[in-house]
Structures are given as structure tokens and as C-alpha cells.
Write a protein that binds this DNA or RNA. Structure first.
Lengths: 220, 220, 220, 220
DNA sequence: TATGAATGAGGCTTCATTCAT
DNA sequence: CATGAATGAAGCCTCATTCAT
């Protein structure tokens, strides 16, 4: 896979190396955790040798932090855009935020990064602060804005947005965690779509004012 | 805490050793993760030497599994009892399940165990299966029974209980995780009571049939 | 040498381990220099395994510093005593200082330690300062006292003691260095006794006042 | 120093490369010792890349040997000339040999090369032999000739020249070593001129026959 | 039962050396 | 000639595990 005979190995684009290493690191850190991930395996998965890794990252910790930083920020940007630009009913915004976040995360290998941060926050306080400041608080803000927008437009009940945002985000994060940890061994297997439909169902029934509430909402 | 002055320490020890080691292990595994926890530290925290630990547990993995097993099962038993015995309105049962689970978990040092399992499930598939079978599925069943009871008594809407149980459990689990990982560095600090009140608020508004719904529910 | 079959290996006196490791370290550091010395070899020479070394010394640098400190201080003490207690002619003191220092150094494996410090001073500034303060300056003081005693008693010419002490110490140090570095491959081989006799000869002819000077000194 | 403004730098380079690398190597080997010197740093100091170094030297050891060889031989030639051509009193020859050797060494960056050889002789036996044969023995011979000349002309006492030459050379070598290793952290700082004056003072008082001896020699 | 000295496999990291351009 | 990305052997250090007392 990583050895194409016709092009010499070091000719391959120097500028792509960091990307490849970050991708390999993401996959392995998520799968095994920080400590159980060997740099030699990360390098091998990126198709280079152990030493090469040190041309791009100072050490294991530095690689780890880069993996987290590089992967999360784009996602958050996207979510912020979405709220900013939405024009329709807040119920649709809520639905879209939830479904598109999951869609983005599911297809990018980032499902595991929350688990990673949960597990390792204690060992990397500095990284935890970065994550809290740059990722969590921005995601929270997105949800708060969505809830307040709904209330301002008379579509949602007025609730304690500060807490409610966390209550709504929690099931999404748990879906990410489950799909990484117990998903593989749970019976029946996780069905993300049905799960998210139930979440949206609960949220809308729980938040919409009576006059906006769907007469008889059925899941999916 | 582990030194009770009135009884001489070597007379009391023998039968307590495993408990003390399990407690020390729980604390450290939760704080640092499996790999970053050194058996020497576990032994020291339990007030014994490194070698002693091997008189009670075969090796590190065995200690880890015992920590998980020993701590979770009692909690689940309690939750099962609660549903069985409840006689009143299902809204009260939901409220009680949520609040008493958190109460039990918060005061027993078990807050971290979910994080632990999430993080290490990948490295211990066998333990993950045990956890899934003995803990998760039983907790799930408790929630399902609560939802079905509500529907059967005409108090709750009819929903996809299989999914909804997970949606409701998720925020509780996340509260446990947050309080272990990002709690310490989040501003403003987590307020578990307000958070759970919002969760209950959302659930009841989202589940109760119109005629049972509180006219104007305010958070807390 | 270090493996006696009848007594189990770890029974051997815990309190002797540091000594054995320091001795092994001295030998190898002197022979190969700091960087070229492998801790595994030091451990092996002391009859223990790699890991054991870390029970007694924090790391390589710490071992190195301990080797230097532990070996030099006793020697300096001895030299200081000698000047303090001497009662006879200063020429005899000079002779005795030189010969007994070399005797002590030659039979204790410490011949190499000066070379070691010379070579590594640049890499361990902190250790160099210690050495300068605790060893060199005290040795210097011994020589200065000897020269001033001679002058005070009218036995030696009056000279610039501050510089002359270094001039006299230099050949002794060089003997230590030579015997470690080029001694093995020099032809004809070094003859320490004849060399020191020449040094004493030069010093006495160069320092004694005419009336004390040996009429016709012949080397040895 | 290595950047001459008037000629374009890539036109001048080719033939100067080896010299620049040898100079860079000398500086770093002396400062850090053989093992602690990284070829990348040598190359960088010479203003070339790591690979270039291998166009001129087979490997690290080869560079090291070349550094030693290239730097020492010219100095020895000069010293030999000096004895050959001297016509005056042997006391003046002794003084001139000592002072001019130090002068040459002090201003050429070669002060450290003795330390280098001392420290690494054990690791490079072959180089040590070269150094012994090509440098040390020739320097020794120069001193022996000086002493024998003095004796033959009736100016010096008759001494064991074979040993005495080493005794006289030792303080000069130590001055080189000190100025490299402990010089920086010694208080008061080394004063080479005063030190050498004391050496000459001692030698002349110790070697000159009574009739040639200066009535009252004062340092400097 | 309890100790803690000892072990050694295994991971992170460095750096001399190579080689395609 | 020159470059610098890539390699991999080798060393420091950690820590789970053993075992004689």
C-alpha cells in the first residue's frame, strides 16, 4: 500500500508527510490510547521509518497534540458556519446541526477523537485546556446560539440554555464514544440513524412550544 | 481514611487487603488510565509493598478487571430494585432513577469508572464484553422497563424505547465523564444539579402526554 | 569474580551495591569517557543488571557525578592532613607530598579521574564547578601552604606562590594523564619513579636557598 | 572570519571546504569531545549540509583523525626549526621555546587539541600511536636537544634529560588543558603570562649552573 | 503473609550514514 | 558538487514481574 515500486520512497512529497503521520497517529491513538500506541507503528502505518517521524514532530507528546489540534478545528469551524447562515425554523437548524455533525464525524475517522480526549485529558492538562477552550466551548456556544435563536423567534420554550446545551450535546458525544468502544461488541448493534432520530424526537417534543409541535411525531 | 486508629493496623489488615488494593487501583486507573498507572503506586496507596499486590492479583490486567467487576455490579443491583418497587407516577420514577444513580455514583468514587471502560475497552475486548453484558445491558433494561411502564400506564408517549433509553442514559454518562476529565478545567464549573434538572426537564416535556404535562415547567 | 554460586545474588549486601557500582563506573568512565560508557557495561562489571543501577542512581549523569565526588574527596583530605602535621624541613614535605599523592592515586584506580574531569568539564559545567571548588582549589591551597611554609622558615626562595603551585602540580597531573592515555603506547614506557625524581630535583634546585642546596645533586 | 566580502561565496568555496570543515571540527571536538559532537553541527558551522561532509571525509572517525593530523604537524615543524637555528645562551632558548610555543598555540585555536587527544586516546588507539609518534616524540626530542645543548655548552647542570624534558613540558600542556576545561570557572582566572614566567623561573633556577644563575630573578 | 532487591523486555529518542535528485 | 529526507542501529530508561528471605 505504501510502497510503490516505481517512485523512490523519499521522492514522495515531503509536504504530505506530516499529513500522513497525523492520519496514522489519529487512527492508532484512537484505537489503542496514548500509552499503548508505539511510535514505530505510527511510522509504519504512514509508510516511513521510526526516525522519519522525528523530522516532523519533536516527540510522542508533540505528535499527539498535533493530531488533536489538526483534526478538530476544521469541524468546529463548519458547525459555527451552519448556525450563522441558517434562515429557517429552529427545529430544522437543530436537526441539521445534529445530523450533519454526525455525518462529518462519521466519515472522517474523527469519531474516536472525543474518546481520546476524555481518556487522556488527565495526562495532558495543557492539551485538555486547549481542547476545552478551542473545541468544547465553541461547540457549546453553537448550541447555545441555536437554543436562544429558537426562544427569540418564539419557536422554543425558554429553558436554561447553559445546561440544556450540554444535555443535548451529550447523546451525540456518547454516540461517538460508543461507536468506538462498545459498539463492536454490543448486541443488537448500534443504529446511529435510529438513535439520532430518537434524540431529535425527544428534543423537539421537549423544546418546541405547543403550537409548533408536530401533531403526531413518529421516529424516522 | 484507610488508617483507623482504634484497631491495631496489622490485626485488621489481612481480610481488608484486597478491598484496599481495589480501591487504590480504582482511584489511580481512573485518574491516569490503565497504562500510565504504575503498580508500585497502587501498592503504595494501599499501604503495602509492590510484592504484596501479587499475593492477591495475578498481574496488572487481573487487578484491572477485578477493579471494574467489583465496583460496578452493586450499583446495577440497586437500580434494578428501584424500578421493580416503584408504585407512583412514571415521571417520578424517571426523576428518581436519574437523581439516585448520580447520587450513588457521585459519593462512591465510581464516577470515573465509565471513563475508564470507554478508554480501555479497545485494549481489553474480553473485559469490554463482560461490561457490556453485565453492566450496560442491565442498565439499559432498567431504562427500557421504565419507559414501557410509562407508556403502558398511559403516562408517556409511545416512543422507540430501544433508542430512547440510550438517549436518556447518555447525558448521565457524559456527566460522569466530564466530571472526571474536563470538569477541572471548565469555566464556569460544572453544576451537576442544574444539569440533571435540565435533563429531567427535557425528558418530561419530551415524553409526557399533553394531559400530564406540567403547565409551565421552570428549570429547577 | 562477582558471581559466587553459593550465595543468592540479591542477598549480597545491599549496602555494598553503591560502592561496587561507583567502582565499576570509575573504571569505565576513565577508560572510555563519559559518552562512550554504556550503563549496561557498568552494571555488568558490578555484577548486576541494567535495572539495578537505577535503584541507586537516578540516571547516567547522576552516577557520573557520584563517581567523581566519592573518589576525590578522601584524597584531598589526606593531603591536607599531611601539610598540617609536618614538622621537618620543607624540602622533605615537598618530596613527601609529591610521592605520597602519587602513591595514593596510583594504587586506587584514581589515576584516571583527572583525565576524566579534564575531558568532561565542558559537558558538565556544574560538575566542573564542584571539582574546581572542592578538589582543585583545596589541592592548590595545600601547595601554597607548603611553599609559604618553606619561605617563612627561610628554606625556600621567595616566589610567586600563586603561580608556582600550579607549575609544580602540573607535572603530577600530567603523569596521571599520561599513564592513562599515552602511557600504554609510549616507547620507552613511562617510568613514574624516575619522572617524579626529576620533578623533585628540579623543584629543589629551583626553590632551595643556596645554603640549603645539595652540593652536587645527582638524579636518583 | 570565513566570509570575505569581495569574492562571491560560491566561487571561493570549493577548495576551501575541507579547511572550513577541519576548523569547524576542531572547534566542536575540542569543546564537546568526540562522542558529544554531532556531525550535523560541524557541517552547520562550516556552512554546508550534512551530506557534503561525506564528500570530503569518509566518516566521523576519519574527520576526527584529519582534524588532529592537520593541526598539529605545522606547530611541531616550527618548534624544531627554532632549536636548530638558535645560537645564543641556552637559557634564552628555553625561554623562547616555551613562550613562542604558547604564543603559537594560543592564537591558533589549537589550545584544545591536547585535551582532545588526552580524552580520546583510549578510544582511538591507532590515532594515539600516530600522535605519540608524530607529535609527542618530536616535541620531546626538541626539549631533549635543548637540555643537552645547555649541558654541552656548560650552561645547564647535567640532568636526566629523558625525564626532565617531560617535567618541563608538563606545565605547558597543563596550561593548555586548564585554559580549555577549568579556566572558565576558576577564580582567580588563569594568567598565562605570570604562570609561564614562574615556570621559566623555576626551570632556570633549577637548571642553570651557579655561575650563570641570575643573582636575583624576579618574575616577569 | 509480606517484603523489596533484582531483573530484563520493550519503548522513546538520537544521530551517523546513505542516496536520489 | 551539494542537498536534505530517510534510515535503523544503539543507548537510556521504565516498570511489570519474580523470588529469596
Amino acid at each position: 500500500m505504501s510502497e510503490s515500486a516505481k517512485e523512490p520512497r523519499w521522492e514522495r512529497r515531503k509536504q504530505d508527510r506530516p499529513q500522513e503521520l497525523l492520519a496514522a497517529g489519529l487512527a492508532l491513538f484512537v484505537e489503542r490510547g496514548y500509552a499503548a500506541t508505539r511510535l514505530e507503528d505510527v511510522a509504519a502505518r504512514a509508510g516511513v521509518s521510526k526516525g522519519t517521524l522525528y523530522l516532523y514532530f519533536e516527540n510522542k507528546e508533540s505528535l499527539f497534540k498535533s493530531v488533536v489540534r489538526a483534526n478538530m478545528l476544521p469541524l468546529v469551524d463548519e458547525a459555527e458556519d451552519m448556525v450563522e447562515r441558517h434562515t429557517g425554523h429552529s427545529a430544522d437548524l437543530l436537526r441539521e446541526l445534529i445530523l450533519s455533525w454526525w455525518g462529518a464525524v462519521e466519515h472522517s475517522g474523527l469519531v474516536g477523537i472525543s474518546k481520546l480526549m476524555m481518556a487522556e485529558a488527565g495526562n495532558f492538562p495543557e492539551l485538555a485546556q486547549f481542547y476545552q477552550a478551542e473545541v468544547i466551548s465553541r461547540c457549546d456556544a453553537v448550541m447555545v446560539r441555536m437554543l436562544e435563536r429558537g426562544a427569540a423567534r418564539g419557536e422554543f420554550r425558554s429553558v436554561d440554555a447553559e445546561q440544556m446545551k450540554k444535555v443535548i450535546v451529550a447523546p451525540i458525544l456518547m454516540l461517538m464514544l460508543w461507536s468506538q468502544s462498545f459498539g463492536p461488541c454490543s448486541i443488537p448493534p448500534l443504529d446511529p440513524q435510529a438513535y439520532l432520530a430518537s434524540l431529535i424526537d425527544l428534543c423537539l417534543h421537549g423544546l418546541l412550544k405547543p403550537e409548533h409541535k408536530p401533531a403526531q411525531q413518529q421516529p424516522d
